[in-house]
Design a protein around this nucleic acid. Structure first.
Lengths: 206, 206
DNA sequence: AATGAATGCAAGTGCATACTTGCATGTTCG
DNA sequence: CGAACATGCAAGTATGCACTTGCATTCATT
């Protein structure tokens, strides 16, 4: 008896195939074959292809980042916190590559699917904007357009992840580049946000 | 007599349809209808759907940025130059939206199509990295990993363009955000690159 | 006006796809 | 063991798609 039950096997197979070929490029026959089940079984579980697709996408939440968890780890030290947020984001998105690929492939065709790409970043952007607003209220950092900065922060990270989704770049070198990219990104934000006099003095505050 | 000849009309229709629905989602019948021609005419001109697709993509070069042209406009003043490069990039990519959408939709399925996305950024990144290396050689800016910085610079701009490709965000607010985003981006890079003592003093050098 | 090229119209072909039907077999539980 | 449920197998259906064929009409040029 397989470790996964039939329904799970179908969904795993579907996720990987939708990720490789997109919705239309993945036939129910091929998905069933990859799942090691009969094609009819797929229809018995999900009714039709679209429902299968929907259910596959609905599992994305399982690997989401919860902002409550993030809050517990934030120290108020800008550099540390931004580094932590960036690293956590990359960790989670690397596990979400399949969903990102699907979202990217399908979203222009149907904006409703754009949610697949946005479900994580939107929450995180809002979270980061609030975080920065708090620090600004404490006069730790300058007041800026935090919504825009948060978008740029996560946008840069998203771009990095996107380049790893078989968009042609060398995956190994991109992974090696991750830490340096995160360091550089965080430094830029720290420079932009910190009040000039305090850049070097409050090492743990910033 | 139409302004465009038949072949052109077919390619324009195909570009817009591939952009909306992707390759597989665009039927030759629908493309022909949008072009206002008979379906057979499409086959008479292009032989098959794939050739049509290839020819449509091959026209992307028409709106490319030539780095020679860019060089003529670069003053050596970092802030001005980065701003100019960013603005030009956005101008060109806004015109290239259809190609980007196609590239994004099709690339995960076939990495060969990733070139549609990369053909512009790769050249520009190399160009910018060289530009920064020159300034560093003149001790105008610090020595950094210019390849990474260039990638991040154009990556941020690409992300902005991508968000306008019907990935769910409000297009109007994104356009309004463009200048501010460019200003913020350029400022970040200027801060990162300039030698501390000279940030305010050599206003035109940086 | 005649000719050649370009295009339109209508119907058709072969194949792939999502999905269905009918029957059989295997698995699990009381 | 029997019943209910889950799944397999084989064949089929209706539809859509890329592409083809045959004939007719239109357009441009000489």
């Amino acid at each position: 008896m397989s470790k996964l039950n039939t329904r799970e096997r179908i969904m795993e197979a579907a996720l990987s195939m939708f990720s490789e070929r997109g919705y239309e490029g993945s036939s129910t026959r091929d998905i069933a074959e990859r799942a090691g089940v009969n094609e009819i079984t797929l229809f018995r579980h999900f009714g039709n292809k679209e429902n299968l697709f929907r259910e596959v996408l609905s599992r994305q939440g399982a690997t989401s980042l919860l902002t409550e968890e993030l809050d517990e780890r934030l120290s108020g030290c800008l550099r540390e916190d931004l580094t932590f947020l960036a690293q956590r984001y990359l960790e989670v998105q690397y596990k979400n590559i399949d969903y990102i690929r699907i979202g990217v492939m399908e979203a222009p065709r149907n904006p409703a699917f754009a949610n697949v790409i946005h479900v994580i970043p939107e929450r995180l952007e809002a979270h980061l904007a609030e975080y920065m607003a708090k620090l600004a209220a404490q006069h730790v950092i300058r007041n800026r357009n935090f919504k825009l900065l948060a978008r740029m922060f996560y946008g840069q990270l998203f771009h990095h992840v996107l380049m790893m989704c078989s968009f042609g770049d060398d995956v190994i070198s991109l992974q090696n580049e991750s830490s340096e990219m995160v360091d550089t990104l965080v430094s830029m934000f720290v420079q932009t946000l910190t009040i000039d006099d305090e850049k070097g003095m409050r090492s743990c505050t910033v």
